[in-house]
Simulated scan of single mutants.
Amino acid sequence: MAATLLTTDRITISDHIVDEARDTPPLTKASLVLRTDDGAEITLPRDLQKVLLGALTSIANDGEVTIGRMPEELTSTVAADLLGVSRPTLMKWVHDDEIASFKVGTHTRFQRDEVLRVRDLRAKQRRAAFDELRSLDEAHEELFDD
């Protein structure tokens, strides 16, 4: 058996499954469908498809995947880690109204969806900056030596 169910929460992935994941072509604009024994097809909800396709990609790239449930309310330390910034930087963003937060007693907390929204926004901004840099590089290719 290639994947072993250790408990209801843990699956061990063999090298064979990692190889199969690597051999699977990248799935863009794919739709995951379950086929029952009687031939009926059930299309999985879009968010579940994203999770499963992300797991497949992670297995192919890293040979492992961890799936966990993230709480709706995050501490500043967890939020900073998710955003890839220091806690002081995150708190500066709070002060500058760049990210929404709320207080629980004296502690600053963040809504999971807000943190993920900011993370996605920052990723889009980085991609746009990179694309701009590439187009600038291509426009002035003659200035750079190889």
Rank of each mutant, 00 (worst) to 15 (best):
V104K: 00
M70H: 02
V51S: 12
A139V: 05
P45D: 13
R127S: 10
T8I: 05
A2D: 15
D120Y: 00
S101H: 07
V94R: 01
I42Q: 12
E114D: 14
D62P: 03
G63P: 07
R46H: 14
M1P: 11
L34H: 10
Q49E: 08
V78P: 00
L53D: 09
K50I: 13
E20H: 09
E138R: 10
G39H: 02
S58C: 10
H140K: 12
R119G: 02
L56I: 08
R119E: 03
E114K: 04
L90S: 05
S86A: 03
L27D: 06
D97R: 11
V51T: 15
V104R: 02
P26S: 15
T36S: 14
K29A: 14
L121N: 04
T24H: 01
L116A: 07
L116H: 00
K50W: 04
E73T: 14
D23H: 06
S135D: 14
V18W: 03
H107G: 05
T77N: 04
K50M: 09
V51Q: 12
P26D: 14
G39M: 04
E41I: 08
R35S: 10
T36N: 10
E72H: 10
S76L: 02
L44T: 09
A139F: 03
V115W: 01
L32P: 06
L121D: 07
A55C: 15
R87D: 04
D38H: 06
V78T: 15
D97M: 05
